[in-house]
Amino acid sequence: MKETVIKTDKLTKRFGDFIATNEISFEVYKGEIFGFLGANGAGKTTAMRMLCGLSTPSSGKAEIAGFDVYKQTEQIKKNIGYMSQKFSLYEDLTVLENIRFFGGIYGLTDLQLKTKSEELITQLGLASEAKKLVASLPLGWKQKLSFSVAILHEPKIVFLDEPTGGVDPITRRQFWDMIYEASNRGITIFVTTHYMDEAEYCNRVSIMVDGKIEALDTPHRLKEQFKSDSMDDVFYQLARKATRSDN
């Protein structure tokens, strides 16, 4: 039996008359890499905010790591990690300070923090940069560091919101190697991306259109279903039907 770590049932968010997220139902399993795709304005961010316990749904149900999105938002926050390209680390703190700060917030003890920081800095090969401001690191390193920080407390699920936007092609691939490692350790990865080749790296992918999940399956079966040879084309077939858009 696969262990379910995210389960939503007709999860909905309304803003006045506007239904940003419209009755989405899906499950994500432990250790899975789940790609959450959709055009700008399809309702991805709203959905993610509800899943992270940052926004109360209008209706429907959802459990994240076994906790209820209405009542147990604090427990949810303790059991997840989050990173995005926009907000990840404090630029005015050093690499070490960032690790200590986020570790502290997630309740790691001083001893844990010490071992974890050393471990992480060695792994990432950042020994000579440990005392430098994060602002001075190249984007690719920042993103790798920020991912490591997001899973510092060994969360059940990590939410990645366009983690590789603007990153060079080699670093982008190294970043995905880190995702695979985390997933092998049993951390569930919930990721959004605009790179369709990255959709292929996911175990399963959902595609949102106008607030609804219009497709959900493995990349392989989605391509079969839409009779196309690339995820790019699958996405295009679905997203161009959108009546509502960010544009």
Binding site: A39, G166, M196, R240
Partner: peptide, 9 residues
Amino acid sequence: TGVDPVSRK
């Protein structure tokens, strides 16, 4: 940057 594939097209 940050724009979905359809809008990019």
